[in-house]
Design a protein around this nucleic acid. Structure first.
Lengths: 159, 159
DNA sequence: TATGAAAGTTTTAAATA
DNA sequence: TATTTAAAACTTTCATA
């Protein structure tokens, strides 16, 4: 398995269990993680460090309750473009990176070129985002899908 | 602002700054967070506890490098169904909850009924997922969008 | 891999503004 | 009511066996 920095890292079963524990609850103490994976403190600590250095383990974050914080609208935005020039793409990517309401952006294979996940306080805020985006870069066709209900949301990988 | 448990919680500027810090790096010490938000340890600790109890702050997790761990394929799946019965919906939701390759699932307004984000090791694994899903619940029409490139990925809210 | 000790952190409680 | 100070309990980190 090649990590971000190109290092080859081979993970064994214990490594995967450790990652599973960290994904589940990163606030656990080393002692707890060690107990849960059937090892002890020092080896677990060394493995975590190795995986951090290799970039396999990234930032530690908290999950916040978006609705409680007033982010009540979530849109998936399907984008088709006629432009495929390098310069256009650079501008488009920069616009996405800079806008904090864009939580995810993927370049797609096929008919639709890009998909975005956009989280905003309300529909008006989405419109403001949309107007700003199309004024910055030309896009051919945009379809916004409005989420009525978040059925499932996790970043956990099925290790 | 109403939290998950229905409690009213009013957040001030300092609360929002604390949430921002936790989102950015939840591994920081209380001292660091306090310094970054211009307060000190105990008040910050009390605020964090209040927000945790109110459910505004949820689980602490780590971001893992999906590619390095062999999850090389990511699909967005658009689903149309003709079934709108309660019993069908219950079965469908349970199927999504149970499948760990489904990282996100939303019920949508409009033409398309559901969108899923599905992360798997490769295209064959996606096909296995797809076959399993349609054998469990009847769906009318499924479109899979394959991600070629993850341009942006964050769970951070623009507080 | 295990032990253990030093440095640092979280948590609680009491004192103060 | 919110903040500072203080001290006990716990954790991380790392050297050494």
């Amino acid at each position: 398995m090649a990590a971000k920095d190109g290092t080859e890292v081979r993970l064994d079963d214990t490594d995967r269990k450790i990652l599973g524990e960290l994904q589940r609850d990163a606030s656990q103490s080393l002692d707890d993680i060690a107990r849960n994976v059937g090892s002890s403190k020092t080896p677990v600590w060394n493995r975590i460090r190795k995986m951090r250095d290799a970039g396999i383990i990234g930032a530690q974050t908290v999950q916040l309750d978006a609705e409680a914080l007033g982010f009540e609208a979530c849109f998936f935005v399907l984008i088709r473009t006629s432009e495929h020039e390098a310069e256009w793409q650079r501008r488009f990517l920069r616009a996405l990176q800079e806008r904090p309401e864009v939580q995810e952006a993927h370049r797609l294979a096929g008919d639709i070129d890009y998909i975005l996940k956009v989280r905003v306080k309300n529909a008006r805020a989405y419109d403001a985002f949309y107007q700003a985006l199309i004024s910055e870069v030309k896009v051919h066709n945009v379809t916004a899908l409005l989420s009525m209900e978040e059925i499932k949301s996790t970043t956990a990988l099925p290790l």
